[in-house]
């Protein structure tokens, strides 16, 4: 499998300010990577480097010539006050293929309907995007990413602000896209517990540090304790891995 994106000795930042340095990793075709870390740690900076909207201060970011992104933005980056139907929003994913100044045609419409069927909301095609629930909006944005026929799907905080049911459904859908369609996926999230049980590899960004590896490599108490700077426990419950900060004696006493 070829690498779709390769970071070599990359330092990322804005102006003179370095956010992350010494980044050396690849995203091979077929990968399912969770880009995880607390808010403000640099996830978006790495994401912008992958997307090509941020040039490295040092090093190189090489992308496969045939690379095509399918991008699912954070839900609050989209302006839902625009009165747009779900189908029209999904067709936006083909705008770059349609070309400047040209309108979507019958083929674009057919592909958009197929993408909606793929994510299970074909019946919502004529509804206003702003009227949908959080989960339905997210499915619409995933359909829009898919309709452009990407080979790398990137989801930025796809479950942010969702309830347990919607979160589980969206993460299940993303995993299905990876397993059934062989889609390469990068999922950006601040919720390690959520992502760790779905992805195959994790890139952890914490406090200026960066570490990437398989879920087993990253989800170890020694790695996570070192990255977060506090002792953590990694437990398993019904096959789900759960990370919790270890309570000190003082805290236990206080809570008890």
């Amino acid at each position: 499998m070829s690498d779709l994106v390769t970071f070599r000795g990359v330092r990322l930042g804005y102006g003179r300010r370095t956010i992350l340095s010494g980044l050396d990793f690849s995203i091979p075709e077929g990968d399912f990577l969770g880009l995880v870390g607390p808010n403000g740690a640099g996830k978006t900076t790495v994401l912008r480097g992958i997307l090509g909207s941020l040039r490295p201060l040092e090093g190189t970011i090489a992308v496969d010539p045939g690379l095509r992104f399918g991008y699912v933005p954070q839900r609050d980056q989209v302006d839902y006050s625009f009165p747009l139907k779900v189908l029209d929003v999904v067709m936006m994913g083909r705008y770059d293929r349609i070309g400047l100044g040209r309108r979507p045609g019958a083929d674009d419409r057919r592909r958009a309907v197929a993408a909606l069927e793929h994510v299970g909301i074909a019946d919502l095609a004529d509804r206003q995007l702003g009227d949908l629930s959080g989960g339905q909006k997210q499915r619409t944005l995933i359909a829009r990413a898919l309709v452009g026929e990407p080979n790398l799907l990137i989801l930025d905080e796809p479950t942010n602000g969702m309830d347990l049911v919607s979160t589980t459904q969206i993460l299940g859908l993303v995993r299905e896209l990876h397993e059934t369609d062989g889609m390469t996926v990068i999922m950006v999230s601040h919720a390690l517990n959520e992502v760790a049980n779905y992805v195959e590899r994790i890139a952890l960004v914490v406090g200026g540090g960066f570490r990437i590896g398989t879920v087993d490599e990253i989800m170890s108490e020694s790695v996570l304790s070192a990255m977060y700077g506090i002792p953590v426990d990694v437990d398993s419950f019904n096959g789900h891995r759960i990370v919790v900060a270890r309570r000190t004696a003082g805290e236990s006493g206080a809570r008890a």
Binding site: M92, Y95, I98, L100
Partner: peptide, 19 residues
Amino acid sequence: VFYKEFLFVSFDRETARTL
């Protein structure tokens, strides 16, 4: 002529940029 372009960058500039 460029209705589609003006609409897209107004509605969701980040995704427009990635495309």
